[in-house]
Simulated scan of single mutants.
Amino acid sequence: MNRMFDKHKESRRRHICIHTPIIIPVWSQVRMVEDDLMYSTFLEVYENHCARNNREADLPITKFKEQLNQAISGQISPEAVIDLRLQAYNDMTKNFVTDSILSQYMYKTLLSGNHMWAFKKQFAIQLALSSFMSFMLQIGGRSPNKILFAKNTGKIFQTDFHPAYDANGMVEFNEPVPFRLTRNLQAFFSHFGVEGLIVSAMCAAAQAVVSPKQSQHLWHHLAMFFRDELLSWSWRRPLGMPLTPVVGGGNLNPVDFKQKVTTNVDHVIDRINGIAPQYVSEEEENAVDPPQSVQRGVTDLVEAALTPRNLCMMDPTWHPWF
């Protein structure tokens, strides 16, 4: 994908490049990853704030669960559960977790104003690419402890970054938010950083990989990716499932296996096409009233990621209030 970004005008001028540290496969479930002393996780930022203010880091999780006791016991209707979660979420944001924790940490870590400007720009682009990959491959579970960032360069690396699959081998994603873009990130980048850097970088990345000259390359690389993923998934299927003719040692029928790979790839391409800016003629643009922004697909995703009603439905250990 980085080679695709280099060949596209809009992504090249923004210096868009996915950070890829050195990774050495040791075993099927074990990898050695290049480490750096400057790496820190979002969770470490939050725990550092709690330690400095003599607060219990898990207190918001405990309070949130206490306020949802009525929902757990089944005393209220499903419709009222959402309102109860939203009220509990709002209480956490007002009384326990402010939206300036990440900003304070960054300004104390990076003392130079000029360095902060460059760091914030690089950090925003890296977050945009991570968000784009999360949406593209429908990867969830982006809790703060799984997102690492370099305090000197702003580059981002995510652990456990792989899709989940349902019983039919299709990518499964049940989260109400498309990616992690929470209050503290929004406050650090400000409205201009979110609308300017993050949205434009995601649009440029989507447009680069589905351009007519490169879309076929992406399709084949995704097919290889899902082939390996589904082969590994077939080995992990429950023992009680019926066996069929094997593919590479798994228990998948060859025709069915190819169909699963193709379907997953097509779904990924459709998601990218749904947010990539499309060039329209002047006649088509004038026919739409009011005129539609070419970034509306990504803007809708960002709005969904920031909406409290969606965030309150996330698991408490995801720290949606942070």
Rank of each mutant, 00 (worst) to 15 (best):
T20M: 14
L185M: 07
N152Q: 15
M116S: 10
S281G: 12
V265R: 01
K151L: 10
N253Q: 06
L43V: 09
V288I: 08
L110I: 15
L243A: 15
L102I: 09
K155G: 07
A128K: 01
I61W: 11
A167H: 15
D36P: 02
V298M: 07
Q29Y: 11
A124L: 10
F96R: 15
S232N: 06
F64V: 04
D270M: 09
I275C: 12
R12K: 14
E44Q: 10
L68V: 05
H267R: 12
F257E: 03
S131H: 06
P176T: 03
L59V: 03
L231M: 13
H115K: 13
F5Y: 11
G250P: 02
A164Y: 05
R271N: 09
R55I: 02
H8G: 05
M1F: 10
D6R: 05
V294S: 15
D300R: 10
L243N: 14
M116Y: 09
R237D: 12
N53Q: 13
W117E: 03
R237T: 15
W321L: 00
G297D: 04
M136Y: 01
K260W: 00
L102Q: 07
F123S: 03
E285C: 03
F322P: 05
S103I: 06
E47A: 04
L129R: 15
A187H: 14
S40Q: 09
P320Q: 08
S103H: 10
T262R: 11
A57F: 01
V209E: 00
Y279E: 12
N184T: 00
S293V: 04
S232Q: 10
L148H: 11
N114R: 15
D99Y: 05
T93F: 04
I147M: 07
G140Q: 04
A124C: 14
S112C: 13
K7C: 00
D315V: 00
N95G: 05
Q295W: 13
M133A: 15
D91L: 13
C312M: 06
P316I: 04
P316C: 03
A208F: 05
A287P: 06
L218K: 10
D6F: 00
G240E: 08
N95I: 08
G141L: 07
N2H: 04
F189M: 03
V45Q: 07
E175C: 02
P238W: 08
G248R: 04
D270A: 09
E283Q: 14
